[in-house]
Simulated assay, not measured.
Amino acid sequence: METTLTLPAQHEAKTRLARQSARLELDGLRRSFGSYNALDGIDLTIEPGEFIALLGPSGCGKSTALNCIAGLLSLTGGEIRLGDKRIDQLEPEKRGFGMVFQSYALFPHMNVRKNVGFGLAMQGVRGAEADKRVMDALSLVRLESQADKLPGQMSGGQQQRVAIARAVVIRPPVVLMDEPLSNLDAKLRLEMRAEIRGIHDQIGSTTIYVTHDQDEALSLADRIVVMSQGRIMQIGTPEDLYLRPNHVDVADFMGFRTRLSGRVVSVSGGEATIEAAGARLSGTARDPLKPGDDAILSVRPEDLVAVDEGEGIPVTVTSMEYRGRAFFGVARAATGADLYFRADRLLPRGAKARLKPDEGRSLVFRGGKA
């Protein structure tokens, strides 16, 4: 059975494992693979002790950026500095960073104690000091009673905790995490989110966390860096990005799944009204707009509602599913656009309906085809 640390023990473990972080600066990072630019000029300053999430779809460059920071990939251009020291030309082991991989990367023939202590051995830390630090790290992740087990005897969540303990035992100034929860089931992912944020808060190291899951980023990070095609699209707090995405692609990644192309008919007080998909729709203007401009309206599924009558977008329902408190579905507009919406009752496939955004919940961006 796993044991829970008392508050004094947690504080003691924190004190023993903490290491003073320094500001991490990425200046014009570039990484090319032949003619393909995986990173195309990344500028980012990360303050000591921050939890930063690199968020974006597959192929956006987030894992490439993490591997460049770790030293597993060399840069094509740019610099990485930790405090006043340039580190991009150092070998990975000389950077002193902890890393947690998607696949755990534990040694199957070593028990937990030896897995966690491997990095210390590579640093030349052995004997009583190494034993003490290993048990401190295992206490931090609540696995001290599992020290003599092999990885294959543990659950996925426990193995991931071992990987975290191995990363923090070396007292790193920066902990790098590459989609560490993607192999876990939904319940374990939720539990491990709280574990990871709690450990970050205790040890005080800077954490850089790669994910394609907006919920993970929103729940864990102090700031989120949204990436696309090797570039940074927006940096902000979770609230900033959730409520005020500055680009239609950022909005899409933050849950604004429905995108409708149209033309602006009026602008007033920061709100733009467009004609799109056979209806007039209004939303908060996120770009400077004027009547006649091409525009894209974006709205989240929970904020696009099926209405019985009146104004709205005429659609044909293509699928629906029940999610506990409401039904969510996909419908097709006459323009061929797929719309993601919410309803309080089941609508059969092929049913005609009208969809209307909740007031104040849509965003309007400059643009042409959605």
Rank of each mutant, 00 (worst) to 15 (best):
E2H: 14
T3W: 12
T4I: 10
A9W: 05
A9Y: 07
E12R: 15
A18I: 01
R19H: 15
R23L: 09
R23G: 06
L24E: 08
L29N: 10
R31T: 01
S32L: 14
G34K: 02
G41Y: 01
D43I: 00
D43N: 07
D43M: 02
T45P: 03
I46D: 00
F51W: 06
A53D: 08
S63D: 00
L66V: 11
C68N: 12
K85W: 00
R86K: 13
E93K: 13
K94N: 13
R95E: 10
R95M: 07
Y104S: 08
A105C: 11
L106C: 08
P108Q: 02
R113K: 15
L120V: 07
A121T: 08
R126Y: 09
E129D: 15
K132C: 06
K132G: 14
V134C: 09
M135F: 15
D136R: 04
A137D: 11
S139E: 15
K149W: 02
L150G: 02
P151N: 13
G152H: 02
G156C: 04
G157D: 06
R161P: 07
V162H: 10
R171Y: 04
V175N: 09
D178M: 14
N183P: 09
L188W: 03
R189Q: 03
E191C: 03
E191V: 05
M192K: 05
R193V: 09
A194M: 10
H200P: 12
D201G: 11
G204L: 09
S205M: 06
T206Y: 04
I208Y: 03
V210F: 03
T211H: 03
H212P: 05
H212I: 06
A217Y: 03
A217Q: 01
L220E: 01
R223C: 09
V225S: 13
Q234H: 10
T237P: 05
P238A: 12
Y242R: 11
Y242L: 10
R244W: 00
P245E: 08
A251L: 07
A251V: 07
G262I: 09
R263Y: 04
G269P: 01
G270V: 01
A272H: 06
T273P: 02
I274G: 06
A277W: 01
A277S: 12
G278F: 02
R280E: 08
L281T: 02
G283F: 02
A285V: 02
P291W: 04
D293Y: 07
L304V: 04
V307L: 05
D308R: 12
E309V: 01
G312M: 05
T316F: 04
T316M: 13
T318N: 12
M320G: 06
Y322H: 14
R323S: 15
V330G: 00
A331Y: 00
A333Y: 00
G336M: 05
A337I: 06
Y340S: 13
Y340M: 13
A343N: 06
R345W: 01
L346D: 13
L347W: 14
P348Q: 07
P348D: 10
G350S: 14
D358Y: 12
R361D: 05
R361W: 08
S362N: 06
V364W: 12
G367V: 10
A370K: 01
